[in-house]
Amino acid sequence: MGVASRFILRRRGGKSWHWTDIVTWVWLVGGLIIMFGPAVWLAFSSFKTPAALAEFPPSILPYVTSQATVQGYDKPLQLFDAKMPDGSTKVLAEVRRIGLVAQMVDPKAPGEIVRVNINDRTPVRSVSFATENYTTPFTQFDFLQYLWNSVFVTVTATLITLIVNSMAAFALSKYEFRGRSLAMLVILATLMVPLSVIMVPLYSIISSLGLFNNLWGVILPTVATPTGVFILRQYMLTIPDELIDAARMDKASEWQIYWRIVLPLTAPALAVLAIFSVVWRWNDFLWPLIVLSRRELYTLQVGLSIYSGELNVQWHFILAMTVVTMIPVVLVFIFLQRFITTGIAGTGLK
């Protein structure tokens, strides 16, 4: 204890404690609990049976009450720790309950019925993970389809975003042409056009193109991101023009220059954009909600919100599917967090 507290309370340079140090620790530890706690709680809850979810006060770990099949009884009986009149405790199976008295039997000697006051018995519980919360939505509901739709939208939209945005960024950074500053201005000006401002006319455009109830109707409006063009262009401006001139001397076509020289050199910026695009598209909600109205086309986000809004919410399934929806983003967070934080700090995009 002494060593541990000395380690935790140690200060750099051996200075004494100041009130700001206390505030810092309270804020950090409180932050740790408030930021991670809810997600961890959700993950734990997702392994509970519906009966355990309805319990109050809730337990942290998923428990189930133990049951046993006893000779002479068709159904499995629930096991209890019962306090016997002589003060000892014994594991008994409950046959039936009449008022305040439970009729119980010893599973090992099922012949004799023991009467126990219900206040003298507590259920035997063991930790058990209800993995069927995860398997049932995939096998019996459409969640496998939703997962596939989400993956398809995310991957396709990200690939198109990378190609189309990098081509535009190449044109805007390496060519002198009339209307270049106009194009830049238009892109910058619409950097902030949010979906909520254009959703009504955008919907009419999507349906006149026949893309209503079509995953492409979700993908296409998102791919020409001004932010993407902007970061890629800023990065391409740092590539020396001499490289391109040398390639032109060697009779390389402009497409080859873009594909063989500029794109490989832009890899770091492309990686940042790819990570952001994956997170954006995976998390998109309002637009897929508008475009997709057939169940088999829902993305995970839409499917989850529709299921959770239904009258008899099956929380055990919803919780498990929420965890599944969280997994890709948590993986991105664990492995690529550094790229994202530097990306945001540098450009202020999200």
Partner: peptide
């Protein structure tokens, strides 16, 4: 720690 929820989807 403080950045973690930023990446979560609004539905989640």
């Amino acid at each position: 720690v403080f950045f973690f929820p930023v990446l979560l989807s609004p539905v989640v």
